[in-house]
Design a binder for these strands. Sequence first.
DNA 1: GAAAATTTGATGTACGTAAATCAGAAAATT
DNA 2: AATTTTCTGATTTACGTACATCAAATTTTC
Lengths: 366, 366
Amino acid sequence: MRPTVHDIAAAAGVSLATVDRVLNQRAGVRTVTREKVEQAIDRIGYVRDVAAANLAKSRVYPLVFILPSGDNSFMRGLEAQVRAAIGRSPVERTDISIVTVPAFNADALVAALDAAREKFPAGVAVVAIDSPDVIAAVDRLRADHIPVLTLVSDLAGSKRDHFAGVDNIAAGRTAASLMGRFLGGRSGPVAVLAGSMLVRDHRERLDGFRAVMTENFPGHVLLPIVEGQDDPALVERLVSQVLAASPEIAGIYSLGAGNRGLIAALKRRKNAAPVCVIAHELTQHTRAALNGGLIDVVLNQDAGHEVRSAIRVLKAKADGVAVLGAQERIRLEIFIKDNLPFEQGSNTEMPFEQGSNQAPEQGRQD
Amino acid sequence: MRPTVHDIAAAAGVSLATVDRVLNQRAGVRTVTREKVEQAIDRIGYVRDVAAANLAKSRVYPLVFILPSGDNSFMRGLEAQVRAAIGRSPVERTDISIVTVPAFNADALVAALDAAREKFPAGVAVVAIDSPDVIAAVDRLRADHIPVLTLVSDLAGSKRDHFAGVDNIAAGRTAASLMGRFLGGRSGPVAVLAGSMLVRDHRERLDGFRAVMTENFPGHVLLPIVEGQDDPALVERLVSQVLAASPEIAGIYSLGAGNRGLIAALKRRKNAAPVCVIAHELTQHTRAALNGGLIDVVLNQDAGHEVRSAIRVLKAKADGVAVLGAQERIRLEIFIKDNLPFEQGSNTEMPFEQGSNQAPEQGRQD
DNA sequence: GAAAATTTGATGTACGTAAATCAGAAAATT
DNA sequence: AATTTTCTGATTTACGTACATCAAATTTTC
């Protein structure tokens, strides 16, 4: 049997009330007594039963998610995952609010972070823009002991507690490596399409891509970076211009969003030499393009996993408990036509029949 | 506030005791009363507080993991992950026992399954061998209402509740697609190295690989399948023979284990034409070979994720509650030299200081 | 060495559910 | 209508922790 607070009391030779004072750092315990209790705690290997503690506290975790607004399938998918988490709130004891701010606007983000701070939430998750003002705003939250987690794009130099997102340098390197090998002997320049150099994830992807291309595939010239602001309409115009200007183009690496525009531009480009296209984030559009052969590789981060991980980590940070590092690693998923997962509709297995504890007869629908 | 059993009682106009009888399907409730209660339950949207219920029940989940024994890095890694889960037992309320049986031995597996059944565990996870006897043994467990989960290799035709593993047909297809594209213009036959055709995961990988190779890359002849029994020593002998017999070989797909032997054989093969090598499972050996350029791609399934998912699913099945399908999808990870994750040592972030609920000062070591 | 301040103990209630007991009410059977 | 059987209500204890209150013991201060 796992030791309880009573066992601590007995082991330390003190009363339950004193154990409670130590465990929950209440005042009024002499240092000697506190040490006696703490020694007993790790002597008998006590670990607080978080479930029971939360029950007693009627603990809820008010969390704030700050996401960019705008017409961006990936971010809207991310928001949908947060909404799905809101649906699980009663079970997970969370109270999640979503705040959207204009994309690539540091001032708006700072305002949102400061507004969140006023409400003293148990944690804040934010898709960060890399700027000193944003770093300062994040550090203000941390100064108030509010855990902060960066989502998708990190914020180096800040005091944020955790980053839930992929290794974007590795993503860029992977894209370059696959691009180079897929192109094989073919020659021709390669275009890189980004959203904005203001966000760290885009910069890191570019750095990784450029490093591997210049080192391992110097035969392919990199065309000047195109910044499409993650906006499908703008992306389409810009890509069309690039394709017209460089008809001998061999590859395109789209490291940001707005791929709808990229795909539209590619579709209008008939009877020309094949282009190797690598894009980020699996959406209905990139999925269709992958199946249709317009895109060769999609690099993806699972938004659902990111959101669930973010919530787990923020709750753990709020409670001051450790997180399982391996579990919270966000994988860079590589999709080609052949390993596309089925589109998931309703994604629960074996719906729960209220009030039934019976083992189900069967349930095989993976 | 989330509704409780008391709210059900009030809403249905019955007593708490009756609500309890309905919720836990105890005898002695008239059908009309039961229906009245059930209607009240979904009218007010009651969801059982699993944490409180487990607390009241002092519930523990005895689980059995049946794994193949033998000198196989992947399986030993899987076992290590189960042991790690045993370390978390007090927190997760599990009581896990590990049973190892000789690999590719259906009779031994059946015996282990039947032995597990005697102990009436809350769930059984098994790395399945595809055979009618094993299917029958699994179905005997299910007949006793014991949830069964197949791990790594599935068991079609059985009544198993869930499969925790990757889509192996997609894995084979992915390997073929990458192989074909990496080979580019180069010609030459491709060798396939398997463990045994007795396990379904190996067969499915082969099927997927073969399908894409013959359809999209008919220029490459597939050499006869080599079965190395996942045994490094045997694999080394067999691969050396193949390399000697077909010096013009262009690619090798190792879809099973025992890659230590493959790597050793490749190392001994000096100054010959480059071979594109795709292998499964990231171990210290394949990782080193990937970094060293001996292997081009490693397809992987995260053993830690598989084990944690298996435990979550078995607990859910034992309680008859729904599982989050998306969360339990085991990803096929594709590793090339450029996206190898850092080797994880101790994998917890911010060790918990006993008895402290304080927010930590900082913690940035991703 | 007495008063004041601090520390400790004892005890009770609460969180939401499970499980048991026993008395009483309502049905079904004769 | 009386009896048996089945169903329902009321109440209590428990799980492990949090939190509050008040009394008693100990230490500190003057």
